[in-house]
């Protein structure tokens, strides 16, 4: 089964690279929107009344967090399919893995940008607030998931184990969040400049934030498609690569 599965993708795949016209369009769009976000975030939008210029971190932070959650949802859905649709297990598994990798990257970005913003606004890099704490646990959970994906085992076994893990993470997160909310509610609210960190957004700020979400989502789609195709090529290397090498050697022998 493992032999026939990766070969299925071979017919639809360009063996010289991972880009197609569709991904090029997505890539160019992502770049264009991202450029607008950067320019608008730094030059066009006004500083916040309370937070001043530090509010500009939000234009990267919120989209990064959004993409991370989108990525983990994608991983969970792809993992579910990989368990149910047995004849396409490895295809869905590659999507799940690619999405999780990108998700961990963006969640890391969200944590770093959030922490920098917290230093400017709260005066501290970290607060044991339910949302932050849950996000940190989520981050570690998916780092563990990626560690399992790197393990040297048969592709089917790895796919099965990681799919179960991704679905368990969906169970874990609400429980972690709920327990942390309960835990923190026992403590007094820390005295910070602006505990909830909410900002009043004017039209342009909102539009820039929304553009950021669009740009990051496009970048996410682009990255996942390429990563998934790259993984397909890596998987093919074992089967097709060997076949073509043998064929090349055979032609050589004939010529000689």
């Amino acid at each position: 089964m493992s032999e026939s599965m990766p070969a299925r993708g071979a017919s639809t795949l360009n063996l010289r690279g991972t880009s197609t016209p569709a991904t090029r369009i997505i890539g160019v769009l992502a770049l264009a929107v991202m450029t607008w976000v950067v320019v608008s975030a730094f030059f066009f939008t006004a500083p916040d009344v309370v937070q001043g210029d530090s509010v500009r971190i939000m234009y990267a932070h919120v989209p990064a967090a959004w993409v991370a959650y989108l990525a983990f949802v994608t991983t969970a859905i792809a993992s579910g399919f990989s368990l149910v649709r047995r004849h396409r297990t490895l295809g869905f598994d590659r999507v799940a893995g690619a999405s999780a990798e990108v998700g961990v990257l963006f969640m890391g970005l969200a944590l770093v940008t959030g922490s920098l913003w917290g230093r400017l606004t709260w005066g501290t890099f970290w607060q044991w607030d339910p949302r932050l704490t849950t996000t940190l646990f989520l981050f570690i959970t998916y780092v563990g998931y990626l560690a399992v994906r790197r393990i040297d085992a048969s592709p089917e076994r790895r796919a099965k184990r990681s799919a179960v893990l991704a679905l368990l993470a969906v169970l874990e997160i609400p429980l972690v969040h709920f327990s942390v909310v309960l835990w923190r509610s026992l403590h007094q609210e820390a005295s910070v400049l602006n505990p909830d960190g909410d900002v009043r957004l004017d039209g342009l700020m909102l539009f820039t934030l929304f553009s950021g979400v669009v740009a990051f989502t496009l970048a996410f789609v682009w990255l996942v498609i390429h990563r998934q195709r790259l993984q397909t090529l890596v998987d093919l290397q074992g089967t097709v690569g060997l076949d073509s090498a043998l064929a090349a050697r055979a032609t050589e022998a004939v010529l000689r």
Binding site: F137, I140, T141, V143, G144, Y145, A147, V148, I151, D152, A153, R157, R161, L165, L168, E172, L175, V176, F178, S179, V180
Partner: peptide
């Protein structure tokens, strides 16, 4: 799985947080 000794804590500890 190979390396399960170090994987188990990494995977199980976040789940055990609640």
């Amino acid at each position: 799985l190979t390396g399960r000794d170090s994987l188990l804590p990494l995977l199980a500890m976040p789940v055990l947080a609640p």
